[in-house]
Amino acid sequence: MASNDEIVQLAKRAAEKLRINDTETNPRGIPKAPFIDQVEKFVANADEAEAMLRMLQSMLDKYQSMEAVTLQKKASLNQRVPDIKETLQTVEFLKEQAAKSKSTVTTYELDETMHAHAQIDPTDAVCLWLGANVMLEYPIDEAVELLTERLDAANKNLKDCDEDLEFLREAITTIQVNTARVYNWDIQRRKAEKSRPEHEVVT
């Protein structure tokens, strides 16, 4: 049985055989998973099988962790988009009100279960939270522009996330299928060796 170092070397050669480094990538640089159509083309014996399985496992780990990260990104975007939309709509409404010289009467949250009344007279500036405990005043038109930009960017990011997730799902399935096929090939090989005549010695 080969040592750990030898397996690592074999795994490197397996990666080269599969031409992992010159596969296509998706727009965000995620490499496409290579498909092992005929196991014998890439694996010749027990040690190479183990090396291949290990390499496949590490590819699977990478894809799965990319999937987890992308899911997180998607969840956080899904949280932010409604707020940006609502903020944009509100600012546009205030702009209209100002144009008509109308005041707005509204309620606002004083505390979790308490609301108070306020009046908003026609204004030409609003304040937007930037994050990091900072709020910035914006002329209304600039605010509309900024929020529209942000909304478009967030929606595009969501689209990219969904594309990436689909791509990753495909890659993960491919690797899983590869793993099953190499594993089964190895099982077949062992059965074949067992049925050899006894006087033959197998290394």
């Binding site: 600012v91 108070a116 009344h117 609003v126 937007l128 939270w129 709020m135």
Partner: peptide
Amino acid sequence: LTASLYVPGKQIRSDKVL
């Protein structure tokens, strides 16, 4: 007015609260 929007205004009907 929203989680990220604050607008200058004034308190009205300040003797009551919802």
